[in-house]
Amino acid sequence: MAMDMTAKLELRYLARPEGRIAYTDAGSGPLVVAVPGMGDLRSTYDDVVPALVAAGHRVVVADLRGHGDSDTTFTAHGDVATGTDLVALVEHLDAGPAVLLGSSMGGSAAVWAAAERPDLVRGLVLLAPHLRETASPAQARTYRLLYRALFVRPWGAAAWASLYTSMFAKGRKGPRHAEHVAQIRRSMADAAHLRSFRDLAVALDHSVIEPLVAKVQAPSLVVVGELDPDYKDAGAELARMREALDGQELLVPGVGHYPQHQAPEVVTPAVLDFLAGLPAAPAHSAPQENGADGRGACA
């Protein structure tokens, strides 16, 4: 059912200075804008979107720069670049303020957007986010050298698909896991997509996010898998993030870095409960249809 619904959605585009951001737009009601993490696709939310739409939300899901159906012409990547894309998308949709739903560095970008444009953000759902840079300068340099060597043709797509499953998706796998990873691998087989992914991996530096966390006014829900390898102690890091944001938390047992599709039966009800507890959103008219080519634009 999830795949059937999302497969039928019209693909739309947001024009940005260096290219276009691809997104889908489903449902009507209070706006939720979702973005995946590095090396992932918007289909990471396919098990979550139908329930949110059924509950009366308008759900817009975007691909990252250089990922999926977005253009590969961008030269700037990272938390701030993605945060500016989120701001531009909410402004373009003219249906905010929105709840921003972000996975991994997509969650970091959502925090940036909430801190910089509180008028556009009424809530945050952060799935395995990075609210601080935990790597030392020496570790960061080593990682960048590794990414430059690992994420190149001809082995880069296979290497990321393997890491996605073996390292980051530890624990139980959702029913769509194999299909989703195969889709990621097909996308990364394209040289331009692989280059964009590598550029993002090399550029990522979450130190810009930590000083902004205290500026966030929007209510938040932080969701972390207990097996997430991105944290030395997932429970302790979750508690630290929840306290920093003065929000809600959910630790999901038996899953790693992608709780939204490793355990959607746990994550989706928690997201729905969080959305239901937010103050009422301003009323907006139904979303406008794009032209025949399905392309929206933002100045």
Rank of each mutant, 00 (worst) to 15 (best):
A280R: 11
R144H: 09
L14E: 05
R122Y: 04
A22N: 11
A76H: 13
H92T: 14
L275F: 09
H261R: 13
V99S: 12
A157K: 05
A98N: 12
M1T: 14
A292G: 10
V222Q: 05
V111F: 03
L126T: 01
K170Q: 15
G247P: 10
V61M: 02
G294A: 05
G294E: 05
D199L: 15
A297C: 03
L127R: 00
H57E: 06
N290G: 12
Q139H: 03
L52E: 07
K170H: 07
G235K: 05
A113M: 03
R148K: 14
A214P: 11
P219W: 11
A98E: 12
G277D: 09
L86P: 13
A283S: 12
A34Y: 08
K170C: 08
L238Y: 04
G235N: 04
A98H: 12
R185H: 11
V255I: 07
A22D: 14
P282A: 04
V111C: 06
A299S: 13
L251Y: 02
Q260K: 00
V32P: 09
D85Y: 05
A159D: 00
A62N: 06
A114P: 03
A218W: 09
T82N: 11
A7S: 14
G156Y: 03
L120T: 06
L227Q: 13
L238R: 06
L194F: 11
L64R: 13
D69M: 08
P154E: 07
V266K: 13
A98T: 09
R65I: 05
R195V: 04
G27P: 12
H257C: 06
G96M: 06
L272S: 05
S28G: 10
V125H: 01
G174N: 08
L64E: 10
A115V: 04
M38K: 00
Y147F: 15
G19E: 09
E10A: 15
V61E: 03
W112K: 01
H257S: 13
Y147S: 12
A218E: 02
R141Q: 14
V90F: 09
D233H: 07
G225M: 09
D293P: 00
A189Y: 06
G106Q: 08
E18H: 10
E243P: 00
E237D: 14
V267E: 06
M38Y: 11
V125E: 01
P264I: 06
T165L: 12
H193D: 04
R240C: 03
G102Q: 06
P50H: 01
W155A: 15
T24G: 09
V87C: 04
A292L: 08
A283P: 00
S104V: 08
R198C: 12
E133Y: 01
V252Q: 03
A135S: 14
R65N: 01
H92G: 15
S70A: 05
Y258I: 00
L275V: 07
L272K: 02
L145E: 15
D273P: 00
V216P: 12
H261I: 07
C298F: 14
A157D: 06
V216T: 11
D79L: 09
D63W: 02
E243I: 00
R198K: 13
T44Q: 12
E243M: 04
H206G: 01
Q288T: 13
E249N: 03
S43M: 14
T82W: 07
A114C: 10
M5F: 11
E179W: 09
S220Q: 01
V252T: 04
R172I: 08
W160D: 07
G78N: 07
S104T: 06
A218L: 06
